[in-house]
């Protein structure tokens, strides 16, 4: 029974990881950019939530109303003002610039908020749980987070394949120079993609802030979890990313159950095993 509970917790954790990954793979899909500062932006969102909660005294979940638009605007400006200049055939500039950004964000947060870890309090909902039979109980918050992750991923799928914006994303990703010739303003399209990615990051950040302690240095680990979820699941597939996140979450939970010090390692090992045996991921999108 304990194992079932462990796996269940891992699955729910996987939803959060899938959300870390969704923003990352959206950007890679649209503009072939891997944002090394992605994890630090999640932490930034968590701190924006902190400031919002402290200034307005509202529940952290409500702070989403502020944090999401703020992060989206940051994303649009960041892409339009800085990252668009790094796009091109050479892979060094975007990699190094986003790495520099990661360092800047981490140290900026360190200066503003110190290295002390903090956590946001969502109130009573944090301890509530639902009984799921067999003596098992699932926390309301983790369940809600998982549901939210599913909604976000379904939303992204819908956006990509059923809307004009999604069409623009796919066209610009296919062939940026012809996209321009069809009237698409690539600079604007890429900026919208980044805004969307950071909107997802905002949700992930608030969920992170409520779930556990956070401090300025935990960004890179979030990036790595998101990245591992993408690779395990398979490039190009949103639902695959969800599966990847779940597998990662379960691996970590199982590892922790075996030995508390092994939870992170278990996740990394799961990633390396997939990389060794099935490098294209478990559910890669079949290229049409």
């Amino acid at each position: 029974m304990e194992w079932v509970n462990t796996i269940l917790q891992g699955v729910l954790l996987g939803g959060l990881y899938a959300m870390f990954a969704a923003g990352l793979s959206l950007i890679f899909g649209v503009m072939r950019l891997v944002n090394i500062a992605h994890g630090d932006l999640i932490v930034l969102a968590a701190y924006v939530a902190l400031v919002t909660v402290q200034t307005l005294g509202i529940n952290p979940i409500l702070s989403l109303v502020i944090v999401v638009p703020v992060m989206a605007i940051i994303g649009y400006t960041l892409q339009r003002g800085l990252l668009n200049r790094t796009l091109g055939d050479d892979l060094l500039p975007p990699l190094l610039v986003t790495f520099g950004l990661s360092v800047i964000i981490q140290n900026g947060l360190l200066e503003l908020f110190t290295a002390d870890s903090v956590k946001l309090n969502a109130g009573a909902v944090e301890i509530e749980s639902i009984a799921v039979g067999g003596g098992l109980a699932v926390g309301v918050l983790p369940l809600a987070q998982f549901a939210l992750a599913v909604v976000v991923i379904a939303g992204l799928q819908w956006l990509f394949y059923r809307t004009a914006l999604g069409r623009a994303f796919r066209a610009t990703s296919d062939d940026p120079s012809v996209a321009r010739l069809m009237g698409l303003n690539n600079a604007h399209v890429f900026a919208l993609a980044m805004a969307l990615s950071l909107a997802i990051v905002a949700v992930a950040g608030v969920l992170l802030a409520v779930r556990a302690n956070f401090d300025p240095a935990i960004g890179p680990a979030r990036l790595i979890f998101g990245f591992e979820a993408v690779i395990i699941g398979g490039l190009g597939s949103m639902w695959g990313t969800l599966a990847g996140g779940i597998i990662l979450g379960v691996a970590q939970a199982v590892g922790a159950q075996l030995d508390p010090g092994w939870n992170l390692l278990a996740g990394h090992i799961a990633f390396l095993v997939v990389l060794a045996l099935r490098p294209q991921g478990l559910f890669p999108k079949v290229q049409g």
């Binding site: 072939r32 090394i36 975007p94 790595i224 990245f227 992170l264 990394h268 090992i269 390396l272 990389l275």
Partner: peptide, 28 residues
């Protein structure tokens, strides 16, 4: 052999994962 299966940007993050694994193993 493992991380060369990743390309470009993903290779970079892969190298970070390797470092993390080493760090965690050292801590153990």
């Amino acid at each position: 052999a493992l991380i060369f299966r990743l390309r470009g940007h993903y290779f970079a993050i892969g190298t970070w994962v390797v470092a993390e694994v080493f760090r965690l193993l050292a801590a153990q």
